[in-house]
Write a protein that binds this DNA or RNA. Sequence first.
RNA 1: GCGCCCGUAGCUCAAUUGGAUAGAGCAACGGAUUUCUAAUCCGUAGGUUGAGGGUUCAAUUCCCCCCGGGCGUACCA
Length: 543
Amino acid sequence: MIKNAIAESLKKVIEKKYNLPDTEPSVTESPNKQFGDYSTQIAFQLAKILKNDPKKIASDLKDAIEGNAFFEKVEVVGGYINFFLKNEFYHKEIERVFSAGEEYGKLDNVGEEKILVEYVSSNPTGPMVIVNGRAAALGDSLVKILNWRGYQAISEFYINDGGNQVYLLGISCNEVYKKLNGFPYEIPENGYHGEYIDDFVRAISKNTDLSGMDDKSRSDYLGSEGVRYFHSMQIESLRNFGVEFDSEVHEKRIREENLPEYVLNTLKEKGLLYENEGATFFKSTQFGDDKDRAIIKKNGEYTYLLPDAAYHEDKVRRNFEYLIDIFGPDHHGYIKRLKAIFKALGHDPNRLEILIHQIVNLVNEGEKIKMSKRKGQIITLDDLIGDVGKDPARFFFVMRKKNAHLDFDMKLAKEKSENNPVFYVQYAHARISSILKFADSKGINIDNYVDFSLLNEEKEIELIKMVLMFPDALDDVIRIREPAILPKYLIDLASAFHSFYNKHRVITENIELSQARLALVQCVKNTIKIGLSLIGVSSPEQM
RNA sequence: GCGCCCGUAGCUCAAUUGGAUAGAGCAACGGAUUUCUAAUCCGUAGGUUGAGGGUUCAAUUCCCCCCGGGCGUACCA
C-alpha cells in the first residue's frame, strides 16, 4: 500500500508535467538501504517516450514530488529515483494496522466480477493422492486470498460421475467381488486395480447382499455406489486437510440438462464438426490447437472433452465472469483444446485461465520415494497428513512456485526445529503470545493510548516495514497467481521479528516504550495469524 | 519427432515477471543466553545464473540454437 501511494503521486506528477495520463509507474522496494526505502525506474521508460535523458527526467520528477510530507528525502541516482521515508510515516501506518487488528489487509468489494476457481476435481474412483494435495492447497489458498482482498471468488469441485470411468469402476469392482468370493475373475487392463477397490467391495458387501445380482446389475450398482463412496472419501480427506469447497458440480447433472447436446448443436451450426471413421471431430485447429479432437467416439460415447466443455458452458451460465481452472501436470496438453472449444462456443478465451502446477516427489533422507499406481504402491493424502501433520503439509505444498517440481522432504516436514519453516513461523507467533502473557502479568496493557512515535530503532523500523508489506504480498499472489509468495513473506516477517526480539526487550521499566513495542509485536502476531490462515495453517499460542 | 515446464552457491530454493552490487535457509566455520520461549539471533565463507549467440540504456528474466532433466503427445480422464 506504500508502493501504491508513491506510485499514485508519481502518476499525478507525470500526468501534469508531461501530459501522459496512462503511465503506470512501478514502485519497488529498494534492493539496498543506500538506495532508500522505495525506488522507481520510471524515468527510463519515460526517456524512450520523451526522447530525453533519463537522469534529467528523474531529477525533474524529483523536484515535483519532493514536497510530500512523508519523504525524508528523495534522491536521483543514475536514472533511478529513490525515496527515503520519514519514521513518522511508518508510525502512522503501523497505527492503522494496529487498529485493524485481525482484519488487517482485508478489503471489501474491489470488484463486482464473480470468479470461479475449480481445482482438484479428481475422478471419484479412488482415494486422494499426494499431487491432489498440492492442487488443493494451491486452490484453497488462492481463493482465500482473493476473498480477503475483496474479490468475489468461489471454489468448486467437479465430479466426473457420468462417463465411462463409472462403468469401468463398476466392472472392476464386480471382478474384485468375484475374486473375494473365490470365483474366476479378470480385471480389465484399463480398469482400476488398487487395493482400495478391494476395501470398498468388502465394505459394501457387509451391508448389501450382492450375491443375488447378475453381473450387469452388480456392476451398475457397484459403479454408482463406488462413485459415491470414493467421492465422500475424497471430500473427507480434503476436509482433514482444511480444504472445503463452496460448490460441487456433478457431470451427471450436466448430462441430464443436455448441455453436451447444446455444445454439439452449437458447434454443428457453426460448421465446426466433421465425421471421421465413425467418430465425430471438433475442428479445434481453427482455434489454435495442434490437431482436431474427437468429441464423440466410434461407439457413440462422448470423450472427456465434450461434457467438460458443457461444464464450462454451465459455469458461464451461472454468471461467473472469470474462470480459473487449476490442473495437474498431466493435463497440460489439454489446455489448448479446452480453450479452443470455449472460444468456439462464443466465449472470450481471456475469461478462462488455466493454471498448471507441477509434480510432487516425496523425499525421505535424501531418497525419492517411488510410487506406482499399478503395483498398488500409492501413498495417499491421508497417509501424508497422518505422517507429517496438516500444517507442514499445507505449508510445503504452497511454499514452492507452482511451476517448479516440488521435492517434499518428509523428514524435514516432521522436524520440530529451526530448519522447518513452518515451525519457524509458528514459533514467532507463539513467542509473541508468550510476551503478551508476560506483559499482562506485569499489568501492562495496550487497550488505550499507544505512542508509536517511540519506535525509532533500526530493528523496529525494519519490523514495521515488513508488517506493512503484507497487503503487497497478497496482491502479488493475486497478480501473478502465485500463492508461494505468501509463505515466503511469512518466513521473512518471522525472521524480522526474531531479529528484533534478540536485539530489544519488549517489556522494560519504560512503560510507554513497552506499550509501543507490545503493540508492534501484536501487529506482527495478527499478521502471522492471518497469513497462516490464508494458507490453511494454524497459529498455536504456545509450542 | 512435436508441445509444455524446469536448469541459479555442495544441497533446497529466492530474485518484486526487464532494473541498481544475483539473495535466503541447510550443511561448514566462529560467536551470542543471570533476560518476555536458544524451536532464536549475529558473523565468516561459498557464483562464468547449463553452453553459445541475439534484442535492450539495462537480461537469471525476452528471442534463437544447442546440452541435460521432467511431463505430455488417445476415439483415457
